[in-house]
Design a binder for these strands. Structure first.
Length: 909
RNA sequence: GGGCAAUUAGCUCAGCUGGUUAGAGCGUUCGAUUCACAUUCGAAAGGUCACUGGUUCGAAUCCAGUAUUGCCCACCA
């Protein structure tokens, strides 16, 4: 026996326990080669900032899976890591430097110095993140930790790039891209966010037509009017040319037709600005029109703008409108035009479409050998999900995934920032050009172009080629280009390492649905391409078998938690400090179903803290009452003596079965809730109560406790491990085996019920004896009716409820006559309460209501039982059940009527 | 504009393949408590399962429509 604290203080246990786990080496997969490995690649948190609730949820869910599989004897591998988060990180550091007084970090510091600054910053926050992952109790294999900028991962990235380049899937081309003048980089389509803005919409006379625009400042170079071929208004204008008076004088314009034009929009006629609009660019491509640049990369107007050149676009608009008005070309202004402006979701810079030479992945070229055919990236990505090689949970995301792929355009992978994987491509140049180039610390690809450096040859190479003078493409790759390789680059690819051969494909990818496209889709792209090109069979070329998408955590009002409203923000680390990791984990798991958002509030966490404490105290009880907590019964079936023992063992056994089923189906919330209920209601509130005094059976009590701890361990690893060590176990709980379901352990219900009733009556007798109540006398004791009512009607589980009576207290008054009084009074000395303590009228009212209810139910039921269709069509079991129910209700009706009669008598006497 | 989801107790949510009388936690009310735990125990009250139709012997569950809310995608000349 051992004395431990009355309340579990998480802070006093968690760090030491984690340290012990980590040092034990148990986080690394064990060597049993016969069992199928279970592998998760942890979605790498950005190596900036700190852990938020999304990370916490991800860690809790993955840790639950990993711990359970480990306990089930699978080699379980969970690879942790961090992401360099290219744009996000560089913008954070640049901002920090600007706050410190360095106004233009890129030009002031130059490439190497700025990178060094970022490296220092990242190193520090990487440590923070690592420790916070540990705080969550994540049992990941730190010996295999990876970082997306590690040397070997960089090699993987280069290999990926080089192979795609050789296959013609990566190309260098002039395309319209999303340019962020603030960060001075391109941004991927899906990294854009749209903000609605009210603005003015202007109508200008442009030769024979009126055109509408919200952006007059882009219109200087417009020479082409586009109309729909079927638009009758402009029928006479097709393919004609004429001079028009425009912002800076006369322009030679012509009219073309295109079906993409929306006749109902504006005037149905538009002029196009191919260099600064995606749609216009596509039209220009189709009709092979020229695409003059109007706005430079800082957002200033170029020479074409004449008197406005050099002016920033934000300033130019009103001046241009003013000029047009003077010229009499402004026809109309809509004041309240709502339109969306695109901003970079990192850094929130307003995006300006620009044409630039960029690197792209061609998603339509059929270059992959897949299932006997040549398929494009798009087709392979669709195939693996359609043929269920990869299963997305919940299913409805399939549709979203397919839709996204249908609309997928070539992926722009180059970024004009420095933090990240530099593009492994070299340009052969003259020595003079290289000399000129080296003087520019703010190097990036658009500068390279504007300096007119002549590129003699383009070559893929990881290191500088030795033949001639070369400069490296100064740009870097999109972050997602490297994270796309995450499941296998972390296992050593492109080498065929032992880890790679054994652990890939990974089992599950668990992440928030918000990065389905950013990441999940790109991982499928990268792994199918890379691995298939090495000749691996298709089923080994997927990055994972299942994708589990968890919902986002919202505040109590269902709003996104945002830093701008700190009062709604819940910081997982604060909560861990206050309530312990276990409570935080449970609060993130219970009620969290795949793909659905969940609201979190502090009271919920406090509730689970209470549960954690409950487990602790149940264990205290065991420690105080069980002589040897190390022992475990050889044959627990034999050790079970009382019916209560048998019942709790049966329930435990059934619990294991249903928890196993839930875990298999990724229903973690259900599993956790079921174990929670069993622990609290069945084990603590009932079985432990019954175990007080003569019914104590240390063997069963301990056996059930230990199995509860096993079942709970994946969910609440710290408190269970702490208790485990208090029980005197030498091994750690993390290494224990998961409870097994056995068909042998289910005792029969019927006999258990009768014996329990007997036990209960005995217990009530003894309590009464203790209280000095004489058996033969009318006693002032009653048992609250609810329980009896419940237990006799409890359809699911009468025994549990019956058995709970043992924990009842005898009270001196009560509002109800227990129904069971009639049923069980025969031969048992329980009597009606004393009249003066009993509100007969109130009780009568209650009983009458019950009577009505029973009658109504019976009526409904009777109708159904007389319905021939029901008897014919419903399954026999259902019919039988309802017949039985009807009989029961009949009995109940009789009892209630009798009770009312007795009450009448009582009143009279 | 296209799509997806949600709507169940005062609040936050479960409810899987249609099947008896729709559940939990918190909150509220009443009561208990030296005996593992006030981070406790027992109980009560509280629901036309958003609405309208349909399918079915039977619908919270399936179908159609409506309403409200949220999200995603596209577009914005």
């Amino acid at each position: 026996m051992q004395e431990i604290e009355k309340a579990y203080e998480a802070k006093n246990y968690e760090p030491a326990i984690y340290k012990k786990w980590e040092e034990s080496g148990l986080f690394s997969p064990s060597g049993t080669a016969d069992r199928e490995p279970f592998v998760i690649a942890m979605p790498p948190p950005n190596a900036t900032g700190t852990l938020h609730l999304g990370h916490a949820t991800m860690l809790a869910l993955e840790d639950i899976m990993i711990r359970q599989k480990r306990m089930q004897g699978h080699p379980a591998l969970w690879i942790p890591g961090t992401d360099h988060a290219a744009i996000a990180t560089q913008s954070v550091v640049e901002k920090k430097l600007m706050d410190e007084g360095i106004q233009h970090p890129r030009t002031d510091l130059g490439r190497e110095k700025l990178l060094e600054e970022i490296r220092i910053f990242v190193e520090k926050s990487k440590d923070t993140i690592r420790n916070q992952i540990r705080k969550m109790g994540a049992s990941c294999d730190w010996t295999r930790e990876k970082y997306t900028l590690d040397g070997d991962l960089n090699h993987a990235v280069n290999t990926f790039f080089g192979r795609m380049y050789a296959d013609g899937l990566i190309y260098h081309g002039d395309r319209i891209v999303n340019w962020d003048p603030k960060m001075q980089t391109t941004v991927a389509d899906d990294e854009l966010e749209y903000k609605e803005e009210k603005t003015k919409f202007y109508y200008f006379q442009y030769g024979p037509v009126v055109i509408g625009t919200a952006r007059p400042e882009t219109k200087f170079g417009d020479k082409v009017i586009v109309v729909h071929p079927d638009d009758k208004r402009y029928k006479d204008l097709h393919n004609r040319e004429f001079d028009v008076e425009w912002i800076n004088g006369k322009i030679r314009a012509r009219v073309i037709t295109d079906k993409t034009i929306d006749m109902a929009m504006g005037t149905g006629a538009m002029t196009i600005t191919p260099a600064h609009s995606h749609v216009d660019f596509e039209i220009a491509e189709k009709h092979q029109l020229e695409r003059p640049q109007i706005i430079d990369f800082n957002g200033n107007l170029l020479e074409t703008a004449g008197e406005f050149s050099g002016m920033h676009i934000s300033e130019a608009r009103s001046k241009i409108v003013e000029k047009m008005k003077k010229k009499g070309l402004l026809m109309k202004v809509d004041e309240n035009y709502a339109h969306n402006i695109a901003v970079n979701y990192r850094g929130k810079g307003v995006v300006e479409p620009q044409i630039m030479k960029q690197w792209f992945i061609d998603v339509n070229k059929r270059a992959i050998d897949w299932k006997g055919k040549k398929m494009s990236i798009k087709e392979v990505m669709q195939d693996v999900v359609r043929t269920k090689m990869i299963k997305i949970i919940p299913k409805r995301f399939d549709k979203i995934y397919f839709h996204w792929i249908d609309n997928l355009r070539d992926w722009c992978i180059s970024r004009q920032i420095w933090w990240g994987h530099q593009i492994p491509v070299w340009f052969k140049v003259s020595p003079e050009d290289r000399q000129r180039w080296s003087k520019h610390p703010e190097s990036s690809s658009y500068l390279l172009r504007s300096m007119n450096i002549k590129i003699q040859e383009v070559r893929f190479a990881e290191t500088e080629p030795s033949d001639g003078v070369w400069i490296r493409d100064p740009d870097t790759l999109d972050t997602w280009f490297s994270s796309a390789l995450w499941t296998f680059s972390t296992l050593g690819w492109p080498d065929k390492t032992e880890d790679f051969m054994r652990f890939h494909p990974t089992s599950v990818l668990e992440t928030g649905y918000d990065i389905l496209f950013f990441w999940v889709a790109r991982m499928i792209l990268a792994s199918t391409y890379c691995l298939r090109s090495e000749g691996l069979p298709e089923e080994q070329c997927i990055p994972f078998r299942d994708v589990y998408l968890h919902g986002l955590i919202r505040d109590v009002h269902g709003q996104k938690m945002s830093k701008s409203r700190p009062e709604t923000c819940i910081d997982p680390l604060d909560m861990i400090e206050k309530y312990g990791t276990d409570a935080v984990r449970l609060s993130l798991i219970v009620g969290n179903t795949p793909g659905n958002d969940m609201r979190l509030y502090e009271e919920k966490i406090a509730g689970y803290r209470n549960f954690v404490n409950k487990i602790w105290n149940a264990s205290r009880f065991a420690l105080m009452n069980v002589p040897d907590t190390k022992a475990s019964p050889k044959n627990v079936t034999k050790a079970a003596k009382s019916r209560a023992d048998k019942w709790i063992l049966t329930k435990l056994n059934l619990l294991v079965k249903s928890v196993n089923a839930d875990m298999k189906k990724y229903r973690f919330s259900d599993a956790a809730m079921k174990i929670y209920d069993f622990t609290w209601a069945d084990y603590c509130d009932w079985y432990l109560e019954i175990s007080k005094g003569e019914h104590l059976n240390p063997e069963v009590l301990l056996y059930v406790l230990k199995n509860i701890l096993r079942l709970l361990h994946p969910f609440v690893p710290f408190v269970t491990e702490a208790i485990w060590s208090h029980l005197g176990e030498k091994s750690m709980l993390i290494a224990e085996s998961w409870p097994a379901y056995t068909s042998k352990l289910n005792f029969e219900k019927e006999t258990a019920e009768m014996e329990l009733v007997h036990d209960i009556i005995t217990a009530i007798r003894s309590i009464r004896a203790e209280k000095g109540v004489e058996p033969a006398k009318k006693i002032n004791a009653t048992i609250y009716g609810g329980i009896w009512t419940d237990l006799l009607q409890d359809k699911k589980d009468p025994i549990t409820r019956l058995a709970r009576l043992n924990s009842l207290t005898i009270q001196t008054e009560g509002p109800r006559i227990p129904k069971a009084l009639w049923k069980f009074t025969g031969g048992v000395d329980i009597y009606l309460p004393a009249e003066d303590l009993f509100d007969v009228e109130k009780e009568k009212k209650h009983l009458s209501r019950k009577l009505e209810e029973t009658r109504a139910k019976m009526n409904g039921l009777q109708k159904r039982l007389e319905n021939k269709a029901f008897l014919d069509k419903a399954p026999a079991a259902v019919v039988e059940k309802e017949q039985k129910l009807f009989a029961e209700l009949e009995e109940e009706l009789k009892n209630t009527t009798q009770k009312i009669n007795e009450l009448e008598n009582l009143k009279g006497s």
